[in-house]
């Protein structure tokens, strides 16, 4: 064999190895696609067999949720309203706080202050949710009792408020990213016309970043809807159709936790209910996530 042949052979071996690595990496990257497919499949199998036993109209029209009782009712609305109620309360905290902090960090704070404050606020997002649940039940609810004596030990108000605090960093940091991405020329133009800092921030920069902020808010809502431990600990275990924030309720996520804690036999109807509820939750958050990505894309199209 000539040296040329050997080097050609080496070349081939190298190309073969490179291709193998490429295929390997491609396979690893596809884990994400398989995970989504897995979620859909895992949820769908038992959801389908649930709806084979319980017709969809009962799931959507009954007003009680008692699948674990002798008199079974399968109306999902008590779980959905409870989820929306706690999420709504959370957003009442997270949106104003998150937005004000974002505007402050992006438009008012000095770079040094911003570098200090941002990681401090991010700590709020790093605290495990079970700790927030403990805080809501043991600290916030007794505190609220001083002002609202009739409030129950488990209630959506305290769970929602604490969840809101947890979500502040999400709203703040995503909105701040959007605000910072607004070109300086817009600010300079407004300053040049004699606008104050506050006017530049609220009338020029915020409207310009609106779709980015909308993306942050929708993503935060999706997080609130899917949040589990805070509501499972502090909001109660009573599925009831109510908008009263002082009484115990049961969200979709706390129902899944409640059933998981019990020893529910595999394949039983109550086992299947958690997948039906899980599918509902997945669909709800999926729609919100897609909506949020749309907003982000629109924002990027304008400025990047």
């Amino acid at each position: 064999m000539s040296t040329l042949d050997i080097s050609l052979q080496r070349q081939r071996a190298r190309t073969f190895g490179e291709n193998l690595i490429r295929i390997f990496l491609f396979a690893a990257a596809n884990i994400s696609v398989f995970t989504t497919a897995g979620i859909v499949l895992a949820l769908a199998t038992d959801t389908v067999s649930f709806f084979a036993e319980v017709p969809l109209w009962r799931y959507l029209t009954e007003t009680q949720w008692t699948p674990l009782f002798a008199n079974q009712k399968f109306g999902v609305w008590p779980l959905v309203t409870a989820t929306l109620l706690t999420s709504f309360i959370a957003m009442l905290v997270a949106i104003p706080f998150g937005l004000v902090i974002a505007i402050y960090l992006s438009e008012f704070a000095s770079p040094r202050l911003r570098a200090t404050l941002k990681p401090l606020i991010e700590i709020l997002a790093g605290v495990p949710t079970v700790v927030y649940g403990f805080f809501a039940l043991i600290v916030v609810t007794p505190f609220l009792k001083q002002f609202i004596p009739q409030i129950s030990s488990f209630n959506s108000l305290s769970a929602g408020l604490v969840m809101g605090v947890m979500i502040i960093p999400l709203v703040a940091s995503l909105s701040e990213d959007a605000l910072s991405a607004v070109p300086d020329a817009l600010r300079e133009g407004a300053f040049g016309l004699g606008a104050t800092r506050f006017e530049v921030a609220t009338r020029v920069v915020t409207p310009a970043a609106l779709s980015g902020i909308a993306a942050a808010v929708v993503l935060a809502l999706s997080r609130a809807v899917g949040e589990t431990m805070i509501v499972a600990i502090a909001a109660g275990q009573n599925p009831q159709l109510t908008l009263d924030p002082t009484v115990p309720v049961m969200t979709m996520t706390s129902y899944i936790v409640q059933v998981s804690l019990g020893d529910t036999p595999y394949g039983s109807l109550s086992y299947k209910t958690i997948f039906a509820v899980g599918s509902t939750l997945f669909l709800l958050t999926f729609v919100m996530n897609i909506l949020s990505f749309r907003f982000v894309r629109r924002f990027r199209e304008v400025y990047e």
């Binding site: 990257a29 994400s32 696609v33 995970t35 895992a42 199998t45 038992d46 997945f282 958050t285």
Partner: peptide, 25 residues
């Protein structure tokens, strides 16, 4: 694009849903 969309969405899927996936799978 498919991979990227999936990663973005998975980052926002509630963790309790992963629990249901783990339970089944």
């Amino acid at each position: 694009q498919l991979i990227e969309v999936n990663i973005n969405n998975l980052a926002a899927v509630p963790s309790v849903i992963y629990g249901l996936l783990g339970l089944q799978l």
